[in-house]
Amino acid sequence: MNELLATGQLKPIIDGPYPLNEVPRLIQYFGAGQHQGKVVIAPES
């Protein structure tokens, strides 16, 4: 898998980043299957 990532044949899909305060909504979003790829929560600054 590392080789595929390194050669650009495999590209991760990231949905976000979203702020931490949106987690309740994102749980429903993820549960409904509306997301594309991994849902990322950004740390609060």
Rank of each mutant, 00 (worst) to 15 (best):
V23Q: 10
A42G: 09
Y18K: 05
A32P: 10
K38Q: 10
L20W: 01
K38C: 11
K38L: 12
P43T: 06
V23M: 12
L26P: 02
I14G: 03
Y18S: 06
D15V: 02
I14K: 07
I41T: 00
I41C: 08
P24F: 03
G31E: 05
P12E: 02
D15N: 12
V40E: 11
F30P: 00
V40L: 09
F30D: 14
I27C: 13
A32F: 08
D15Y: 00
G16M: 04
L10G: 04
I27Q: 08
G37R: 07
L26G: 08
V23K: 08
P17T: 10
V23Y: 10
V40I: 11
Q34S: 14
A32S: 15
G31R: 02
I13R: 07
I27P: 02
E22C: 04
Q36R: 14
A32H: 01
P17M: 12
P24S: 15
G37A: 03
Q36M: 11
K38Y: 05
I27F: 11
I27R: 11
P24H: 04
P12H: 00
P24D: 13
P17Q: 07
E44D: 14
I27T: 13
G37M: 04
Y29S: 12
A42E: 06
N21A: 13
V40H: 04
Y29P: 13
I13G: 14
K38A: 11
Q36Y: 09
I14W: 07
D15W: 00
N21R: 15
E22L: 09
G31Q: 08
V40F: 10
L10N: 07
L26M: 13
Q34N: 15
G31C: 03
R25L: 14
H35D: 05
V40A: 09
Q36D: 06
Y29L: 04
Q28E: 15
E22K: 14
I41N: 02
P12Y: 00
D15H: 01
I13P: 10
L10F: 11
Y29Q: 07
Y29A: 13
K38N: 14
L20F: 08
Q28A: 15
P19S: 15
G31K: 07
A32C: 09
R25C: 06
L10I: 05
E22Y: 03
P19W: 01
K11T: 15
G33R: 00
N21M: 06
H35M: 05
Q28Y: 10
Q34P: 10
P24M: 05
E44F: 04
L10D: 07
D15L: 02
N21D: 12
L26Y: 02
I41R: 09
G16S: 10
L20M: 06
P19G: 15
P12S: 04
E44R: 12
L26V: 02
D15F: 00
K38H: 01
P19C: 11
V40Y: 09
L20H: 04
P17E: 14
Q36L: 07
F30H: 12
V23F: 00
I13A: 12
I14R: 09
A42R: 12
A42C: 01
V23L: 11
I14A: 14
D15Q: 03
P17K: 07
Q34D: 13
I13Q: 15
